[in-house]
Amino acid sequence: MFEVISWSLFGGILIGLAASLLLLFNGRIAGISGILSGVFFPARGDTFWRVAFIAGLLAGGVLAPLIFQREFVFELNASLPVLLAGGFLVGFGTKLGSGCTSGHSVCGIARFSWRSIVATITFMATAIITVAIMRHVL
């Protein structure tokens, strides 16, 4: 358990460091849904840094397991309709609600934004209810 907590904390610290440095260097919020949606709906022709950030995410996914000798654990067991519905709702919902876990829960809460605090409580609640229904009711 101690090891699990240590890796969780360490990973979280890296995420917090990344978000703080992106704000310090470029003045931008590390909200992944916003960064991604800006690639498809460019407002001011600022696509290049978004693509660079997303390329970085993938680079981190390759480099971190190599550097720290940790396995990249990925277990996805969902049927095709669930994958499609889940993906669609995540895309639709984050665009409508102006953010996801990174933008609202990591960056927004750090800025003491009430919008982000309310959004985080809302999506945590509906996610917990969805899992409860999927795993214990259906």
Binding site: I32, F92, V118, F123, A127, I129
Partner: peptide, 18 residues
């Protein structure tokens, strides 16, 4: 509404955008 829908999608699959 956006946050609520996002949460449902997140709970269905276990994946958020990042």
């Amino acid at each position: 509404t956006g946050a609520a829908l996002f949460g449902i999608g997140w709970g269905l699959v276990g994946l958020c955008p990042g």
